[in-house]
Design a protein around this nucleic acid. Structure first.
Lengths: 245, 245
DNA sequence: CGGGAAATTGATGACTTTCAAGGTGTGTGG
DNA sequence: CCACACACCTTGAAAGTCATCAATTTCCCG
C-alpha cells in the first residue's frame, strides 16, 4: 500500500523545519525555550474525519496545534442542537477552552483526517513555570479566542445572513493570505452544513446566498473552492447595514 | 442636598462586612490573603448612569467588582452596530476581557448609577504572584466568561426569539436566587432596548414576546419587575425546539 | 406639570425557514 | 473500471418568523 498524497501520514519533523513554525507556539519562544519545548511534544496525533479530539466535560489532556486537516469546536445543548464555535485550521492552537477550569467546555471534532502536535498538560504546566514565552503565547491565544467569540456574537446578533457570510469569506481569505496563500482563492475547510451552522442559518439559506453572490459575480465557487472575484463589492456587502452612502 | 435612598452614596465597608463577599474575590482567599487584598482595594469607584467604566482599546486599569447598580459590556463595529456581550450585576467581576492582552476588547457602560470596588492592575499583578487564591479566582472568572459567550452563541445562532427570552429570564431568576433573593421575582436591570440587543432581536419583537408570555400567564411583568408565575411552562418553552414530547 | 424617552401595539412586508424534489459528487464493492 | 448507494448540495414553493414603520400610550425626569 503506497502512501496517499495528502499529509495524513507525513512523518514528524522538527519545529524548526515546520512550515507552521511562525504561527505556532515556537513563535513566542527563544532558541533554548524551543529546544525544551521540542523534547516534550508528541507530533503524531492523528484524528480521522468525524472523530473527536476531545469532548465537553472531559478533563484537559493537553493542548494541540493543527498541522494538517481541520477541526471544529462546538457546544450542544440538551435538545441536541449544535452551535459551532470556531473552525481550527493548520497553524491554529486548540484546547484552550479548558484552560481556566481544566475541563473542556466544548467538543472538538475533525472535519477531515487531521494531524496534530500535542503538548501534554503536565508538560505544559511545567514549561509554563519555566518559559515566559510560553505564558505569553497562552495569553495571546486566550485573547484571540475571546475576541473571536465577541465578533461572532456581533455577527449572529446584529447582521443579516448575507453580511455574515460575506464577512466570514473575507475573514477566511485574510486567514489564508496571512499564511502565505492567495488572498483571493482558497478551499473551504468545512461542509455547507457546518458553515451554515456556524453562521446561524439554514443550509438552504446559505446555499441560496452563495448562488446569489456567484450570480452577482462577487465570487466564483465550485464545490469547496472559493475565488473572490470582486473584493470591493464583497467588502461593501460585509459592512453595509445602514443607509446608502 | 440630602443623600438619596439608594446605595450610590453608601460608604465603603470592609470586605468582611460586605454582603457580596462570598460572590466576590474574597471567596477564593484565606484570612491573610484577604487582609492583603483589602489594603489594596479602592472601594469608592462611582459610575453614573450611561457613563463608561472603560472603553475598547484602552489599556487595562484594574479589575472591578460591582457593588450596586448594573453595567453592560458591548462591542461596536465600524457601522456603529452594537452587540451587548454581558450584563454585570452586583457581585459580578468586570475587566477580565483585557486580561490576555492588557487592552480592553469591549466597552463597559453603567446602566444605572453604579458603585464598584477597584483592584488596580499593578496591585493585581503583584498579588497574583503572592496569592494562589487570587489566581484561582481569576481563572474561574475567565472560565465563566468563556462559558457565557458560548451559551449566548448557541442561543443567538440556534434558538428562536421566544426561547432566547425564556431561557434568559430563567437564567436571571437563577442568578438572583443564588444571591439570596426570590427565585421567581426580580427587577430587570436593563432597558427593553438593551435586553433586545443582547438577545439579538428588535425591541418590538421583545415587547410582543413579553406581552404574549404575560397573556399566557407564564410571567407577570410591570415595567422592570418580573414575576415568574409558571416556571414549568417557562422551562418547557426555553427548551422546546424539537417535536411534541 | 410638561416634554421627551421608553415601551407597547398594529399593519405590512421582507427575510428566512421548512418541506420537498432533484441534481451532483464521492466512495465502495462488484 | 463501472455502477450503485449515499451523502451533500442546490433549487423551488409555501409558510412562518421577525423587522420595520407608524401611531399611541406610558413612564420618567426635570
Amino acid at each position: 500500500m503506497k502512501a496517499p498524497a495528502n499529509s495524513f501520514t507525513q512523518n514528524a519533523i522538527s519545529c524548526n523545519a515546520c512550515s507552521l513554525r511562525h504561527l505556532c507556539i515556537p513563535n513566542g519562544l527563544n532558541k533554548d525555550e524551543l529546544e525544551e519545548l521540542e523534547r516534550s511534544i508528541d507530533k503524531t496525533v492523528k484524528i480521522p474525519k468525524k472523530h473527536e479530539l476531545y469532548k465537553a466535560n472531559e478533563d484537559i489532556n493537553g493542548i494541540y496545534a493543527v498541522k494538517s486537516g481541520a477541526l471544529k469546536t462546538s457546544i450542544i445543548n440538551s435538545e441536541g442542537q449544535e452551535q459551532i464555535l470556531e473552525f481550527h485550521l493548520p497553524g491554529d492552537l486548540l484546547g484552550f477552552d479548558a484552560f481556566a477550569t481544566n475541563t473542556h467546555s466544548c467538543d472538538a471534532i475533525a472535519l477531515e483526517d487531521s494531524l496534530l502536535c500535542k503538548l501534554p498538560m503536565e508538560v505544559f504546566e511545567n514549561l509554563c513555570d519555566k518559559l515566559p514565552g510560553l505564558r505569553r503565547v497562552m495569553m495571546q491565544q486566550i485573547g484571540k479566542e475571546i475576541s473571536h467569540s465577541q465578533h461572532l456574537l456581533l455577527s449572529l446578533g446584529q447582521l443579516p445572513t448575507e453580511e455574515r457570510l460575506a464577512s466570514y469569506l473575507l475573514q477566511l481569505a485574510e486567514h489564508f493570505h496571512a499564511r502565505g496563500f492567495s488572498k483571493s482563492e482558497y478551499i473551504l475547510p468545512m461542509s455547507r452544513q457546518d458553515l451554515s451552522n456556524y453562521l446561524g442559518m439554514a443550509v438552504e439559506t446559505l446555499s441560496r446566498i452563495i448562488s446569489r453572490m456567484s450570480n452577482d459575480k462577487l465570487i466564483k465557487i465550485e464545490q469547496r473552492k472559493v475565488i473572490i472575484t470582486d473584493i470591493v463589492k464583497l467588502e461593501k456587502l460585509a459592512h453595509a447595514s445602514c443607509g446608502s452612502a
